[in-house]
Simulated assay, not measured.
Amino acid sequence: MKINDTASPMRADASAALPQRLLMLALMAGFLVMLGTAVWQRLSEPELVQKVAHVSAQHSQEEMSAVGRLMEQVSRDPTNMDSLLALTNALIKMENWDTAETFARRAIELDGKDPRPLHLLGVIQHNAGRHADAARTLEAVIALKDDASVRYSLGVLYIYYLNDKERGLAQLRAGLALPGISDSLKKHLESELKKGEQTPAGDAASGQ
Rank of each mutant, 00 (worst) to 15 (best):
N127D: 10
A140L: 13
L154Y: 14
L157Y: 08
V141D: 03
R105I: 15
D146K: 10
G155H: 06
R106I: 03
E95M: 11
L120H: 01
I92Y: 08
N89E: 14
V156C: 14
A143D: 11
S149M: 05
K113A: 12
D146G: 05
R151D: 02
Y152Q: 13
H126K: 08
L154D: 06
N96E: 13
A132G: 11
A135C: 08
G155N: 08
I142C: 04
T99G: 04
L157S: 12
D111C: 10
N96I: 12
E139D: 10
D147L: 01
V156M: 11
E95I: 11
D114K: 07
L157V: 07
M94F: 09
L157H: 09
A134F: 07
E101T: 04
I108G: 07
L121K: 00
D146C: 00
A128C: 14
A135D: 11
Q125K: 14
D114N: 12
E101N: 10
D133F: 03
A104D: 02
I92W: 05
S149F: 14
I124H: 12
I108L: 08
R136G: 03
W97L: 08
A148I: 04
H119R: 14
E109I: 05
D111A: 14
M94D: 07
D133Y: 04
R151Q: 05
P117L: 13
I108S: 09
F103N: 08
V123G: 04
R106T: 08
W97Q: 08
T102L: 15
I92R: 06
V156W: 07
A132Q: 11
I142R: 03
A143R: 13
T102K: 14
P115N: 01
V141K: 00
G112S: 13
L138I: 00
E95S: 09
I92P: 06
P117C: 07
L121Y: 00
A100W: 06
R130H: 14
H119T: 10
K93G: 09
S149D: 10
E139A: 10
T102R: 12
D133Q: 14
I92S: 05
R136F: 03
L154S: 06
D111S: 15
G112I: 03
D98M: 04
G155E: 12
W97T: 07
E95Y: 14
A128R: 15
G112A: 12
L144V: 02
H131R: 15
A90P: 01
N89L: 07
L154K: 06
E109C: 11
V123T: 13
D98W: 01
S149N: 09
R105G: 03
K93F: 13
L157T: 13
D111V: 11
N96Y: 11
A134K: 09
A128K: 08
A104N: 04
I92V: 13
L138D: 00
T102Y: 09
I142N: 03
R130K: 13
K145A: 14
V156E: 07
Y152M: 09
L91M: 10
T102C: 04
E109T: 15
A140M: 05
R151M: 03
